[in-house]
C-alpha cells in the first residue's frame, strides 16, 4: 500500500480529514521552498502538494499564475524540484508529496526518466493537469512501474464513463474540482458538492480529495464533511504573493496563521 493510501486509511480510522496544502516550488524563491514544506507539516499538513512551474498554466487562476512566474524568474526546473524534495526527505520521511503540474516539462524529460527520478527522491504521487486517462501513451504505466500514485482531476461535469476510466487508471485518491473555474475561483456551493459526490462515489472507489475555491476555515470545515481530504492552494499562495519580497520569517508567519485556521476548522468539524 502506498504512503498516501496508508496515510488516508489511518486518518479515516481516527475519524479525521486530511489537510493538503499546495505551494509552487520555487515561490517566491527557490531557497524558501523546503523550509515552507516543513512549516506546512508542523502546522498540520497531512500531505503536501508541490506545484511544478510551467510557463503556460492553462487551468490556474491569477494567484497561481503569478506564483509560477515568480518561480520561473529563478528558472526553477524539474531537476530543481526533485532536489527540493530530496532535501525535504532528509528530515521528513513520512509526509506524502504529490507533484502537480503540466505535461510538457514531464514529456521533455521523458516519461521513464521523470518517473524514475521522482520516485528515487521520494515523490509519492503525480497529478498532471493536462494529461487525461485516455491519452496515456505509456505515461501512467511508467508512473505505476515506479510505485507513484496517479492522481486525476474530476469535475462536476465528468460523466460516469470517464469516472470509470479514472477509477481504473488512478490511485491514492481522486481530486474533485469542486467548482467550474480555474484555481482560486469564486465561492463554492456546498449543497451542490454533496449532490455530485453522491453520484461519483458510486463509480469511483478511491478516496475523494476536494479542492478549488476553499478559502477559509468555514469552507474547509464544510468540505471536510464531504471528502477524505481538503486541498487548499490559492488561499496560501496569495499570502506568499502579499509577502513575497519580505523575509522568509514573515512569509512563514502568514502561512502558519492560515494553516492554523484550516487545521482547527477541520479538526472541529471532524470532532462533531
Amino acid at each position: 500500500m502506498s504512503r498516501i493510501s496508508q496515510r488516508l486509511e489511518s486518518l479515516k480510522s481516527a475519524g479525521k480529514t486530511a489537510l493538503v496544502p499546495y505551494i509552487t516550488a520555487g515561490d517566491p524563491r527557490p531557497s524558501a521552498t523546503v523550509s515552507l514544506m516543513h512549516l506546512l507539516v508542523e502546522k498540520g499538513a497531512d500531505m503536501i502538494e508541490l506545484g511544478v512551474p510551467f510557463s503556460d498554466p492553462m487551468a490556474d487562476g491569477p494567484v497561481i499564475q503569478k506564483a509560477v512566474e515568480r518561480a520561473l524568474e529563478h528558472n526553477v526546473s524539474m531537476n530543481d524540484v526533485f532536489e527540493m524534495v530530496r532535501e525535504f526527505r532528509e528530515k521528513d520521511a513520512e509526509t506524502p508529496i504529490i507533484l502537480m503540474g503540466y505535461l510538457n516539462p514531464v514529456e521533455r524529460m521523458g516519461f521513464e526518466s521523470f518517473a524514475n527520478a521522482a520516485s528515487s527522491v521520494g515523490v509519492d504521487a503525480v497529478l498532471t493537469v493536462d494529461m487525461p486517462p485516455q491519452e496515456s501513451m505509456g505515461y501512467f504505466d511508467a508512473l505505476k512501474a515506479h510505485n507513484l500514485d496517479r492522481i486525476f482531476l474530476i469535475s462536476p461535469t465528468t460523466p460516469n464513463s470517464r469516472l470509470r476510466a479514472v477509477n481504473e487508471k488512478g490511485s491514492g485518491f481522486v481530486y474533485y474540482v469542486s467548482l467550474k473555474g480555474v484555481t482560486g475561483s469564486k465561492e463554492l456551493d456546498v449543497d451542490d458538492v454533496a449532490k455530485q459526490l453522491q453520484r461519483m462515489q458510486g463509480e469511483v472507489e478511491l478516496p475523494f480529495g476536494i479542492g478549488f475555491g476553499i478559502r477559509n476555515g468555514e469552507t474547509a470545515a464544510a468540505m471536510s464533511k464531504q471528502g477524505s481530504a481538503v486541498i487548499v492552494g490559492s488561499a496560501l499562495v496569495s499570502l506568499i504573493e502579499a509577502n513575497h519580497d519580505k523575509d522568509l520569517y514573515e512569509i512563514e508567519l502568514a502561512i502558519g496563521e492560515k494553516m492554523n485556521e484550516f487545521r482547527h476548522a477541520i479538526d472541529k468539524a471532524d470532532a462533531e
Partner: peptide
C-alpha cells in the same frame, strides 16, 4: 476519432474542459 494526426494532436486538456469539448 480522438483527434490524432500520427503522434500529434489529441486532447490534452484539463478535466474541467472535457465535457465542453465532448
Amino acid at each position: 476519432a480522438e483527434g490524432h494526426f500520427g503522434p500529434y494532436g489529441g486532447i490534452f486538456a484539463p478535466e474541467t474542459l472535457m465535457a465542453a469539448l465532448e
